[in-house]
Design a protein around this nucleic acid. Sequence first.
DNA 1: AAAACGGGGAC
DNA 2: GTCCCAGTTTT
Length: 400
Amino acid sequence: MKPQMKNEIDTHIRFNNWAPSLVGWYRRVKRDLPWRRSKCAYAIWVSEVMLQQTQVITVIPYYQRFMERFPDVFALAGASEEEVQELWRGLGYYSRARRLWEGARYVVRTTGGRMPEDFASLLMIPGVGEYTAGAIASIAYGECVPAIDGNVKRVLSRLLRWEEDVDKAKSYRFFLEYIKIVLPADCPGDFNQGLMELGATVCTPKNPKCELCPLQVDCQGYSLGNPTVYPVKKSREKVKEVLRPTLILVCEGRVLLKKRPSEGLLANLWEFPGEELILDSLADYSWYDLYKTQVIDRSYDEIVEELLQAKTNVQGPLVHTFSHRRWQMYWVVLNLDAGQSLDVHNSEQTIRESSSDYLGSEDRTCWLDVSQLERIALPVAFQKIWSTATGITESVSNSC
DNA sequence: AAAACGGGGAC
DNA sequence: GTCCCAGTTTT
């Protein structure tokens, strides 16, 4: 540690022996959460990955379904990515699911399925970073290592009146060294969880319940009067505006789906064919060109062209916001039933088998029975389009 | 050091 | 609408 940082820490440390207060408080009030009923490293791992950037209340049902289906690292490693993504649908940050799955396969491949039992070994698992490795090591194995997440940074920034942007690397390094000093060797798991539990239930971003805080007398932010000026955040994100024309091709109770690329946004998930456009409007947009570039099978060209010429009923917009991008979604519904019979060489069976490796395969499209839409990994954005489109369709047919 | 990566809960 | 959540990887 740099001497400068040591001095910085010393200036922040009073006679603080607040760790026992925190641990005592945690043991008294901790919530009864599914993953806290297990000391199994795999169970902790699954919960920690799900809890990345996701609130406890959202995770609980996903965690229970996941552990029921994949009770151990063998079960997860033996599954297909498609199957894992189906259980993850709606949870977001889908690369987490793929990395967890890859991590399970890594563990089975390298150790035969025995979970690594120390921080450094856990850190080698793909998808496991410093936080997750620290959480598993301290909670499952009692190893004396920090686990610093957003909650911990918020609590410490208030406790110590940390004036710098908490998202900077320097802040993380400081919190890391500080925690190493105050971390109790006999109960690192409860200490780490206590800090996170405090951030989640008492030292909240807005309206912190300082009257319930076990660290109130130690808290410099509280003594200042307004702890919510911390944490200081300067980082600011700009949201990109993007148009998203989408094709809903329906035939004989099936709808055309396409598998997204294996990298980037919503990787390997299903979508209705379409593209992203950085334009101001869809004026003069050629939906037929979109169809020609997105659908490789040329069997439907004639009827699609006919339908688009007859009356291109563009619907939308429907807005869907990601953390860094906003889609303005427009779509056309094309019913091909009047045309030739559907080529059903692709079906639900194909989806399951085609899950993991599409590299080298040119046609990523597939006809799926509409009743199966709720069972596959279809991102929320496209669920929204589908429910809106079918809702409108039904109301129109009802009114006719 | 900064950007990419989702969705939902809370207000 | 806004903010933010038991973060990791890639550039």
